[in-house]
Structures are given as C-alpha cells and as structure tokens.
Amino acid sequence: MISFLQTIGRTFLSGLEAIGRVTLFTLKSVLLAIQPPYYPRLILKQMIEIGFYSLPVVGMTAIFTGMVLALQTYTGFSRFSAESAIPNVVVISLTRELGPVLAGLMVAGRVGAAMAAELGTMRVTEQIDALTTLSTNPFKYLVAPRLIAGLIMLPVLVLIADIIGVAGGYLVSVVKLGFNHATYLKNTVDFVQALDVISGLVKAGVFGFIVALMGCYHGYHSHGGAQGVGKATTNAVVTASILILIFNYVVTELFFAR
C-alpha cells in the first residue's frame, strides 16, 4: 500500500517538475527572443519551413474536412428538413474549431517532429555546445526563430485552411447535393462573423507557439543518442497534440463563455 502511494506521489512530483521545467524554458525563450541579436534570415527560413511546406498537408486536410462536413451535415440535417443550414455549419465549424485544431495537429506531426529531431541531433552531436563556445546563445539562434515563425505562420495557414475548407463544403453541396451556388455563398458570408475567424486565428497563433515550443523543448533536452532523439520526437508530437486540445478549450472558454 505504501509503495503504491509512493508511486503516486513520485509521479505527481515528477509531473510538477516537468511543468516547472517547461515553464522556465518558455520564459527564458520568450525573454531572449525579444532581446537582440535577432536573426531575420533564420526566422524567414523557419517561416518557409513551417508555412509554405505545410501548405499541401494542411490544404488537403482542410478540403476533405469541409467536404465530409457538408456531407455529414446533410445526412443528419435532412431528417429535420434543415439542409439549408449546411453553409452555416460548415463555415462555423471550420473557422472556430476544425481549421485551427486540425491544422495545429497536422503541423505538430510535420513540423514539431522535425524540430525535435533537428535540435535533438544537434544536442547529441554537441552542435548546441559548439554554438555556445562560438559566443552564440542557442536560445536566440535556434529556439527564438522557431517560436516566432510558429506564432506567425500558423494563423496564416489556418486562414488559408478556412478558405479551402469552405470551398470543399461548397463543392460537395453544389456539385453533389444540388445546392444553388450563389445561395450557398451568400449564406456562408452572411452567417460568418469576424469573431469566428478571429478566435480561430488566435487559437492558431497559440497552437503554432505550442508546436514550436514542444519541438524545441524536447529536442533541446534530448540525450542518449539515436534512441533519445527518437523519444524526443515522439514526445514533441504527443505533448504538442495534447496541449493543442487543452488550449483549444481554454481559448474557446475565453472567447465564447457566457
């Protein structure tokens, strides 16, 4: 019984320790990111890596999500003769929830894993130590550009995903379900509000920061050779995905709680 309680206590304490370490890493990263020197070339490189190269996967996710959403809404709503609500459901679901969450999860899988693997390899091959000996702060050189790029580029990706997702819903509704295309677009534009889009973009910014932070944190603290890098990569994706779901609720609560 005592050993069982000890295990619970140890797990709880190590959980608190991990939260403390991540918090300190975040504070240090943010404080150093706002101090010179800045690395615009590296920020631009990361923006291309996170934004441009994630476009195909995020775009594919968005278009098929929009299409499925229209189809499912139709099968469900037709039972109540409420098919006309399809444009409203599609645009609200995508802008508020599905766009940012799915884009965040896809980017976590693609970019978060790559960041953890890159920084993890740099750590185990002493490249991060080499940076320090060359009078370059690894937080400013490696972590800050990734955090800034994640914060900026995920909202851009989500905005594009919103448009592509709505287009997917439009395509299915007009081509397959026989909706009038002008009415569909009018309903979409009339129903969507600025707050729907803005809340989604704020979520995207938070998710982009989380993805980059988890990729950098786990990569930076990687140890134990190839196995350690593999573990860091897995942990980066898993923790980023869980945090995205948690913070999705938190931001939703902040925007829409009554």
Partner: peptide
C-alpha cells in the same frame, strides 16, 4: 576556441 571530439560541425 574549441575542437570537439566528434567535430560538432553544423
């Protein structure tokens, strides 16, 4: 200046 065991080139 530092020369690392595994070279540690970027």
């Amino acid at each position: 200046g530092m020369l690392f065991q595994g070279s540690a080139l970027f």
